[in-house]
């Protein structure tokens, strides 16, 4: 029995690594560029890699570099990081509904690797989600992020500009690739994605909200609204 359980863990870990590969590719350009900018901001190689190791959140790491170069104090940077990353709370809460129950320490361990990308892959691609699977997806993504941050610091300037530019589409292409199969013939999913896309565009382009808050707010409004409408429609059918 024990052996079967170990085998099952192993294969779901491997499946997670496979499904995490598109994230690893998507992280190349972002992490390389991060390393490159970190160097020009004046960070040491050790500090650059350490930030990727400990924080593992792209947008806020870019933001930290930007604020550092403007001479902002570290407490302000930490507070801004919190605001930018609070959306992960929503993602973890959603993912928790989908993951098989496991020891809380194991779950708290893989929770470190929950990013926009690993969350999207895990919550769209497969069900049920085990801890082993999560370690696979997050592990591949994390390794790519940390290693490429370091490589970007050392070699970033040598990367051809055209390729650097075209690779910036990678993560968005991945998000689209995850969303489209679920969109097909599912009005609820279309409604959810379109509503939040419109809200987020309105909030950010009007500078009404910063990117972090805007994603949280648009996601929540869309998810609650569509659920309420869908619930009312179902009740109407039953009555």
């Amino acid at each position: 029995m024990q052996e079967i359980a170990v085998k099952k863990e192993m294969s779901s870990f491997r499946r997670g690594m496979q499904e995490g590969t598109s994230i690893a590719i998507g992280y190349f350009p972002i992490a390389l560029t991060f390393g490159l900018i970190a160097k020009s901001t004046g960070l040491a190689l050790s500090e650059t890699v350490l930030m990727s190791l400990i924080v593992f959140a792209g947008a806020s790491q870019y933001m930290a570099l930007n604020l550092l170069s403007l001479g902002t104090g570290i407490y302000e940077i930490i507070l801004t990081t919190f605001i930018v990353n609070i959306r992960h709370f929503l993602m973890s809460a959603s993912l928790r509904e989908k993951t098989e129950d496991d020891h809380v320490l194991k779950q708290a361990a893989f929770a470190f690797g929950i990013t926009d990308e690993t969350f999207s892959v895990a919550s769209i691609n497969s069900s049920p989600v085990t801890s082993g699977y999560m370690f696979g997806v997050n592990g591949v993504a994390y390794a790519s992020w940390v290693i490429c941050s370091g490589l970007g610091f050392i070699f970033g300037a040598a990367l051809p500009h055209v390729l650097q530019e075209s690779m910036s589409i990678a993560l968005y292409a991945m998000f689209i690739g995850l969303l489209v199969p679920s969109l097909k013939g599912n009005k609820k999913v279309i409604l959810l994605a379109v509503t939040s896309a419109c809200l987020n565009s309105a909030f950010t382009l009007s500078h009404f909200l910063g990117t972090g808050w805007s994603i949280v707010t648009s996601t929540l409004i869309s998810a609650v609204l569509v659920e309420a409408v869908d619930g009312a429609r179902k009740r109407g059918k039953e009555a």
């Binding site: 968005y172 896309a197 996601t219």
Partner: peptide
Amino acid sequence: GVLRNIPFATLGALIFPAV
């Protein structure tokens, strides 16, 4: 139900307008 909706709503907001 709301939490099950989150992935699709998040993807919409992550893609637009950033892409």
